[in-house]
Design a protein around this nucleic acid. Structure first.
Lengths: 221, 221
DNA sequence: CAATTCCTTACGGAAATCCGTAATAGAAAA
DNA sequence: TTTTCTATTACGGATTTCCGTAAGGAATTG
């Protein structure tokens, strides 16, 4: 069972609600941080003091305010922890429910569980924590299904870069120029045209504006 | 002072955190609803029973699930209440912090207060509730500033409709046709062209895709 | 009732995109 | 090295958007 737990979450009502439940249900030493930077520092310090955290529960998006932070989101925080091989289990607790996004967190950040904020999320959280004392990874049946359901599309980094340039208002000529300068490989206007066409076809977009709109709605941008 | 309060919020941790604070701070009879439809029904029933709610605290976005709802967001809920002249004060409590959005809630829904979910939002909430027992409207100094800061643009309903059609991938010809059919007034391709141009100029957009992207990011769409 | 003004519509050339075809380069296989 | 295959690039015509100018229409004003 975990002993020392850190909750990284900026919204106070969630913070307080969640911590109350954790304390009531488990016998944790629960701390919390309202900023990612602050969370990172606490984790580092705890480790150096020989009393490391066993578990991090973190939100994804944190509001910007007058504080200037180097880490601006939960995934950046986790990435940094993983990079530095700080050994602790991680649960992401967020409103984000798009499978494309969630899949990348398991894949790239090797998180141990993901809980969608929702109508039964505290119960889910309790279950996940209990499971993680035994296994290394926990995905609820419901989440498993949504992750399975969405067909893995063959959209690459390149496509996202491309659509991003379109969303920034660059013409195909300009994108070709930019890509050549940056050494991004298919860089000719012709290839870019072709790729945009493929994407429009894939997303059933009638034109460029439509494509940008669709991809933005999906949260890929 | 209020007596009977309804909290409409789907995320359980927020729900529980907020309600705990309301009960601790005030002496309210606090109820809660996890769906907009459910909230509406409770409000109607309470009114018919002669024990109406004095105050509604509602989130904006609610997650979709297997339940089929007629009301899908907090603003729709409030709109319906206002439409039917159900007398109660309303506080919207949401993560949404874009001034364009918040302004419309005060303007169109005549809400009594707006609290951004954030690092000090429960304190803000308590203050707002206290203020609303005396005055009809409460806007925190901080929020006032952000609302003032953004220059009120002369963007009309028509412009939003137009950009929406662009985001849906309709060509200028098609939009002209649609607008003619729906009796939306400047409907000629020429006028539409001109209007799009004005918008691109206003938002400093290089082309249509850019325009859609900007407006989507601002939350006007 | 004519004049002015503002808004809508019409038109046309320049630019960008759309879309298919063909040439070329680069890598893998023989 | 040659062959084969695939990915990239080049090109050209059809379509759409872009952008300025001008005509038409309705409301306002003198």
């Amino acid at each position: 069972m975990f002993k020392k737990v850190l909750v990284a979450e900026d919204i106070d009502s969630i913070n307080e609600g969640l911590i109350a439940i954790l304390k009531k249900t488990f016998n944790f030493d629960v701390h919390h941080a309202k900023y990612c930077d602050n969370a990172y520092l606490k984790i580092r310090k705890a480790q150096q003091d020989g009393r490391p955290y066993d578990l991090l529960i973190t939100d994804l998006s944190f509001k910007q305010d007058h504080h200037t932070n180097t880490l601006n989101s939960g995934d950046e925080l986790v990435a940094k922890l993983r990079e530095q091989n700080i050994p602790m289990k991680v649960i992401i607790y967020s409103i984000e429910d798009r499978p494309e996004k969630i899949r990348t967190f398991f894949k790239r950040l090797n998180i141990n569980s993901y809980i969608c904020k929702g109508r039964n999320s505290t119960k889910e959280m309790v279950r996940a924590i209990k499971m993680l004392t035994e296994t290394d990874q926990y995905v609820s049946a419901e989440l498993q299904q949504t992750l399975r359901a969405a067909p893995v599309m063959e959209i690459e980094e390149y496509d996202i870069l491309l659509i991003n340039e379109l969303a920034n208002g660059n013409a195909q000529d300009e994108i070709a120029f930019l890509f050549k300068k940056q050494g991004i490989r298919p860089a000719s206007k012709s290839s870019i045209e072709k790729r945009i066409n493929r994407l429009k076809n894939y997303f059933k977009a009638k034109n460029t504006a439509h494509l940008v709109s669709i991809v933005k709605d999906m949260g890929l941008l």
